[in-house]
Simulated scan of single mutants.
Amino acid sequence: MDTVKIGIIGTGWIAEKMAITLEGMEGVEAYAVASRQLQTACDFADRWGFTRAYGSYEEMLDDEEVELVYIATPHSHHFEHARMSLLKGKAVLCEKAFTANARQAEELLNLAKEKELFITEAIWTRYMPLSQTINDLVNGGIIGRPMTLSANLGYPIGNRERLRQPALAGGALLDLGVYALNFASMVFGTDVERVTSTCVKTDTGVDAQNSITLTFKDGKIAVLHSSMLSMTDRQGIISGDKGHLIIENINNPQRIRVVTEDYKTAVVYNCPPQITGYEYQVYASMEALRNGWLESPYMPHAETLRIMRMMDDLRREWGVRYPADE
């Protein structure tokens, strides 16, 4: 497979970020883009150098040249658009949160397996080199035995309609909290014994900000916070009995600072040069397609489903319901 031809469903800012990414990558072609309005797709294609523009998603998916579809629509539409892509025989890279709920996620993953097609969740943190460095440091014992973790992600974006509406699977959890949950999972694993949480809801009924504590069977504790009301420091801190790691920006790690027992910085690891950070999930998808894999080892299907189920449980506890849950 020399060059992978990529088609994008959606023309919003996430689609634009992917277009910028593809522009700087090797081995990919920004081939097609689809919108519900042909003119919107044409404008996007002209701006970012795409070969084809389509005024319907189905039309793009009927193009035999498209090899990998990137889903860049709101959370509420991921299931429909990913399912449509799979039924048309296309491999899928679907933006986080993967779907609105776990039931939809399970159906998509089963369909992909049945069709023997690749699908993965485009949660970029999972694919980044610095994420592997974090695990290497933790497993290497540089901070001793890691036992506590904190992570937060927040931006003042609560006025965006996409995030305010239950019909669009809005709220801080699926947009931002999913990163904190994945960060904890990447570092501390999946053996969660207890989840406690609280949230503050908007007048539309979605979570505006939340706090989640995960207690693991081996005694580790992760405290996670996400908010669409405030600009947080976006830090992750992993603490052991011989020091701690400070990670700047948990969704796109920029720097890891190793702090010793005497609270002095021992070493700093910086993020390698990147286009946008989205390139790693595309390269991972290309690797999977070359090898005939149905999932990526960086974000296994079981992890996507487990975290979707966890978010379902949290929303149920908070009384945050989407039409897709009915």
Rank of each mutant, 00 (worst) to 15 (best):
S230W: 10
I8G: 07
I212V: 15
T133H: 10
E193K: 15
N139A: 13
N152M: 06
V187N: 08
D136A: 09
V187S: 09
M1P: 13
V178R: 13
H77L: 12
G27R: 07
D2M: 12
H78P: 05
N210L: 15
V267K: 14
I119A: 06
L68M: 08
A34W: 11
P166N: 03
E116A: 11
Y70V: 14
P129T: 00
Y57H: 12
R255N: 07
L229S: 12
W13T: 12
S76M: 01
Y31H: 14
A184P: 07
D43L: 09
N252E: 06
T51R: 14
I6M: 05
F98N: 07
T40V: 12
E287W: 11
A30Q: 01
T190I: 01
F216P: 08
G189I: 09
E67V: 05
T232W: 11
H225F: 15
T21C: 15
E193D: 14
S76N: 11
Y322F: 15
D62Y: 09
R309N: 07
S35T: 00
N291T: 02
Y322N: 07
A34I: 04
E248H: 13
R36S: 10
E161Q: 12
E67C: 08
T3G: 00
H75R: 00
A32F: 08
A105I: 04
T3V: 11
N249H: 13
I142G: 04
T99V: 08
H77F: 10
Y298A: 06
R126F: 06
T3L: 05
I221K: 09
R126K: 13
N291P: 00
Y70N: 11
K201V: 04
S226E: 09
W293A: 10
T40D: 14
P253Q: 02
D312M: 03
A222P: 06
W318E: 02
Q165S: 13
V33K: 03
D312C: 03
